[in-house]
Design a protein around this nucleic acid. Structure first.
Lengths: 229, 229
DNA sequence: ACCTGAACACCGTTCAAGT
DNA sequence: ACCTGAACACCGTTCAAGT
């Protein structure tokens, strides 16, 4: 046992390290990994940093910005090596997008927040750059590449966000099952095409569907001119 | 002035009409149009219905389901007449999708909730049926049409959701401006493609970009086989 | 400049108890 | 079966006052 009244805790563990933006974000990332994004609230985070919630507003404008900062941090894990690897550009682009998707699927609540407040830090920019570089290599015209990168990242993000809601709580899963049931039980007179395609509409894993979607969007972006109409 | 103590209010305005699912949803729709989706909470809605929040849980499983029911209601306003109109199937499909987008842009908070909990009522099914019918008319193979309808509705919904966040609060708009600024100020050595396309990346209105995206996804879905790999 | 206590104005959801 | 009061366990954000 340490002697009583020793000034240890005062000197070795300064109870309150000064607040910094980086420190706040790092704590937020840890909190999210430990307890999920739902618990990364201004109040809970302030508690973790041994302060009051008002103090955080000096560094972060609101909760959405905080969540965007967490995502930006995690985007450092996206594998961008396919950009410089050999092989077909489409496959390598699908690889980068697949890696982005994996990051989102591992922390799926973030995908949801990414749709609302996109990050704009270096890791996000590096991802955009990688996608643009591969579209350029594939000969996709600049204007189409510029708009195409948005669509590609958006479908990946939206798919992860949808999936995340179902993973998180049973109610969202129930609702998805309700949709599947509704599609299968639909009267063929009123909805002939839905009835004809019932099986196809719900087939495949999210990953399989997303892989096809990436290819389809890449092909579409490559071949669809940006006419001003 | 009416005579005092008349039993009027007791007989002519029964203070509490019985709760029903339809009544709850109708009140929720009205409340959203009056005060915005943010105010359509279980507590606020219960107050509007002159009861306690616990009573609503007899009819609605949770807030997400309530919001999905509101959207399903509003989807009745989507214009599906292009399905049976003359003209190029692509243009008519873009028309249906554009009408769906307009509904979402008018009540943009709903778009956000639609990504999490999709509706599965008759209006949503009619929209899916319309898109499938037009893809069928265009000769898009069944499997590709089945997966393509999802992508088309998803990009429309995700675009509206993004836009809604910016319309709603200034903070989200600031964040978007931060991204635009970051894209324009990026060092050309580190991010050569972003620098080269800076103007294109942020050009166009959401409507213009979405119109191109619809065409690109339709083309991609039409030409991209669903190989099992 | 930075930090904070305290307050304002809310939330979703559950559950035992009533009718 | 349906409805409810009351409670549990939280929220985001602001602002005047302190250091």
């Amino acid at each position: 046992m340490a002697p009583r009244n020793a000034p240890r805790s005062r000197r070795e563990r300064p109870a309150k390290p000064a607040l910094t933006y980086d420190g706040i974000v790092a704590t937020a990332v840890r909190l999210m990994k430990d307890e999920g994004l739902r618990r990364v609230t201004m109040r809970r985070l302030a508690q973790e940093l041994d302060t009051g919630p008002a103090s955080l507003y000096v560094y972060v404008a609101n909760t959405a910005e905080l969540h965007a900062a967490i995502l930006e941090e995690l985007l450092g894990a996206v594998d961008l090596t396919p950009v410089a690897a050999p092989g077909d550009w489409r496959d390598r682009l699908a690889g980068v997008l697949g890696s982005y998707t994996e990051v989102l699927f591992q922390h799926p609540d973030l995908a949801h927040s990414a749709l609302v407040a996109r990050p704009s830090g270096p890791n996000y920019l590096a991802l955009v750059e990688a996608v643009l570089a591969l579209l350029h290599e594939g000969g996709v015209p600049d204007g189409q590449a510029a708009w195409g990168v948005d669509v590609l990242l958006q479908v990946a993000t939206a798919t992860a966000a949808e999936q995340s809601a179902r993973d998180r709580d049973a109610a969202a899963e129930d609702e998805h099952l309700a949709l599947v049931a509704a599609l299968r039980a639909v009267p063929a007179e009123t909805y002939p095409r839905i009835a004809a395609l019932a099986g196809d509409l719900v087939s495949g894993t999210p990953e399989q569907r997303l892989a096809w979607t990436f290819r389809a969007v890449i092909n579409g972006a490559r071949t669809t001119a940006r006419t001003t109409d």
